[in-house]
Amino acid sequence: MEININHISFQYPNGYPALRDVHLNIPSEQHIALIGHNGCGKTTLARCIKGLLHPTNGEILLDGKSIRNEKISSLAHKVGFVFQHPDDQIFHQTVYQEVAFGPKNLGMSGEVQVEKIKEALALTGLENEKTTHPYDLSLSARKRIAIASTLAMDTDIIIFDEPTAGMDHKELTLMKVIFQELRNKKKTIITISHDMDLVLEQSDQLAIMAAGQIVKVGDPVILFRDMEENFSEMVAPQMVRLSQRVLKNNKTAKTVDQFVDFLIQ
């Protein structure tokens, strides 16, 4: 599903301008990453796309249709949002019920529901925890429950807010598999993250935000390659720094595999 963000601004009731004339095109099936310091407007933008906030000016179109007058509950059929804190949503007795909450609200038919939930649980490595109480699991496992509960809704657009915060290596690997699977399913993905290594590896497009504006949009490899001069406050991803020192002709690798391929060539 294509997302057009058409010159939107957003002002909080206290007058704070969280977004200032943001214009961005997210083509269907693309994975875009939003980066920037806390308070730069990333999550406000994501909340506008999800319909939780209404832009003060401008509008957002999904596949050409404005979402201005759409109810949040009906927008939930199109846009999923994985929030940062899983404990803000978990309340069921079992993992399975928790993951079923979204699909049920969307009115999915029984069979489809069962299938989607099964799939989501498998992807998040929770298939053996169906009957476990969510609070008997660790925080990072609860985070996976939150991810599963959004995946099971099978929306065309999925927004992730800091999906990997607090995850260990195993869970990071799992997250990569999830992103790949969503790609196969032709989903449009928006990821907000401080994890530059993840962003470089996973995103097709990178938008850098500061003070409520998008200051740069483009190919993550190119943006990160020039990172030192543009955004001295962030540390470039490991593969970018290694590429710059080892690879010739200003080549920059996105992933470990690509780096090795470049090197052997």
Partner: peptide
């Protein structure tokens, strides 16, 4: 053990494997 390697270690291991 699930701790993982830095990408620098990963890249060198992969390089040795491929070459």
């Amino acid at each position: 053990s699930g701790i993982g390697w830095t990408r620098f270690t990963q890249a060198s291991a992969l390089y040795l494997e491929k070459t």
